[in-house]
């Protein structure tokens, strides 16, 4: 780990000012569960850490009936919130399906959104990776990609976004509030295209302050289903956040793409009266699986059908 200075920000303004005055490579620090991890691997090398984990730590009721979740709210506290459990159960389930109890106590809402891919090539500085070292190549395309993207990938990057929480938020039309603007969650994360090093649309000196979940009646009938290689404490092969009350519908996939994958086509198909299976296929038509991950197409379809059947 390279030496760095550490400052604890007293407010969002202070955080931005401190960040702005750093000579190079300042990073905002939340719970540290991914950033410290990546610093120790040499993947991230900030010269300054601006600790924002103690700012914006409350979950407030919005005037319209939604929730405003401070960026510093810990994953475990968010999962335990009674309003989240009752009104957005898939969000609570997604949070609890992620990481471990002790990691959830450290990890923040803002940090969770900014998690970087767990693609093994990205995490090893001795191997090529366009996301980590632009232009060095993507060995995953021809190498090990069993658990990587099947939709929205590019020749430069086939990584997936690892967050569970973000999948539920994508389904629920959440909005990310930053120090500058409001960004719909579905537009917050990017596809890799020819700039795979950019995970999100966030500017380097832009800070997430809160995530707003709007009132959404159907969210009360929602579920999160995560398929993984062991029963707990593993990243998703495929996951589905679905809300369905026989009328309104929201669907997002995890584990399929560089971003949480809101399944607009599947939602539209169901609204038009298609069967669950046909709706899943309508969404997954655009899948371009790699040599070893075609199984994800079938797995995603079946997982979605299963989730919707359980909600019906």
């Amino acid at each position: 780990m390279e030496p760095f200075t550490y400052r604890r920000a007293s407010s969002t303004e202070d955080a931005l000012a401190t960040h702005g005055s750093a000579t190079r490579g300042a990073k905002f620090l939340g719970g540290g569960t991914n950033l410290v991890d990546l610093m120790r691997l040499g993947v991230e090398t900030p010269s300054e850490l601006v600790d924002v984990s103690r700012l914006e730590c409350s979950i407030d009721a919005g005037e319209d009936g939604g929730l405003r979740i401070g960026a510093g709210v810990r994953n475990s506290e968010l999962a335990a919130d009674r309003r989240v459990r009752s009104r957005y159960p898939a969000l609570a389930q997604a949070l609890l399906a992620g990481a471990s109890g002790q990691l959830r106590n450290l990890a923040t809402t803002g940090g969770n959104l900014l998690q970087r891919t767990r693609c093994p090539y990205f995490q090893d500085v001795t191997k090529p990776c366009n996301k980590r070292e632009p232009g060095s190549g993507c060995p995953a395309r021809e190498g090990e990609h069993r658990n990587l993207a099947i939709v929205g990938h590019s020749e430069h990057c086939v990584a997936t976004h690892p967050s569970d929480m973000a999948v539920a938020l994508a389904a629920f039309d959440a909005v990310v509030h930053t120090s500058r603007r409001a960004i719909p969650l579905v537009d917050f994360h990017r596809l890799p295209e020819d700039e795979p090093w950019r995970d999100t649309v966030l500017e380097p000196d832009e800070l997430i302050v809160a995530v707003e979940v709007p009132p959404l009646a159907v969210a009360a009938r929602s579920t999160y289903r995560k398929v993984r290689e062991r029963a707990s404490f593993a990243f998703a092969l495929v996951s589905v956040a679905a809300a369905y009350d026989g009328n309104d519908i929201r669907i997002a996939f995890g584990g399929l793409a560089h971003k949480p994958w809101r399944a607009f086509a599947a939602e539209e198909a169901i609204r038009s009266g298609a069967s669950f299976r046909d709706a899943a296929e309508a969404e997954l038509e655009q899948a371009k699986p790699l040599r070893d991950n075609a199984y994800k197409v079938e797995l995603a379809a079946r997982t979605l059908v299963r989730a919707l059947e359980e909600l019906s």
Partner: peptide
């Protein structure tokens, strides 16, 4: 190992 990719479908 017997992972889901080998069984699904």
């Amino acid at each position: 190992p017997i992972t889901p990719d080998k069984l699904v479908g």
